[in-house]
Amino acid sequence: MNIFRFLGDMTHLISILILLLKIYATKSCSGISLKTQELYALVFLARYLDLFTDFISVYNSVMKVVFIASSLAIVWCMRRHRVVRRSYDKELDTFRHYFLVAACLALALLVQEKFTFLEVLWAFSIYLEAVAILPQLVLLQRSGNVDNLTGQYVFFLGAYRAFYILNWIYRYFTETHFSRWISCVSGLVQTALYADFFYYYFISWKNNSKLQLPA
């Protein structure tokens, strides 16, 4: 464990806590893409299957349970909670995310570290996480003004993988046979997708103005 990975995990946790706060405090999920939340639930379920087979550390197991439980709770809330689900922007959240799932599954069958069930699912979860934010970014552009908590949620979500990239660079130089190229390439793509969001987020922070994404 190095400081970059720890900061990355904490940033990821903060993003989830901000989203839970927004939904719980405002009883609303306006501006949040249910499709992105479903993709994240799929990412965690596909990646953390080793929760019961490989024990790495208490920290690792606890965080896996937190990520799986929170992502499922958010999806349940947006689908079933009688108050929250009324604020879901159903007509704006129209990204065909099933194509993302199919494409990532196909890619995982072609490119993975070892052609085994767990490795294919792990690669699938890495590829899917890289593109899972797309429905959310599309929704933000369509819904014009972005409320603060939603903007902060997306910001921390993008920042966490940037910390992981620093973690992979650190591990590459400090560990002998560290090869995590599937994660690295996907992580770079994932962080790059946030580039324009980060730009507009920085502009709104500098001008102390409302976050506006161009349509």
Binding site: D54, N60, Y164
Partner: peptide, 10 residues
């Protein structure tokens, strides 16, 4: 020490 090739990251 966990093998670094193992999935020790979240």
């Amino acid at each position: 020490e966990v093998q670094s090739s193992a999935k020790d990251e979240l």
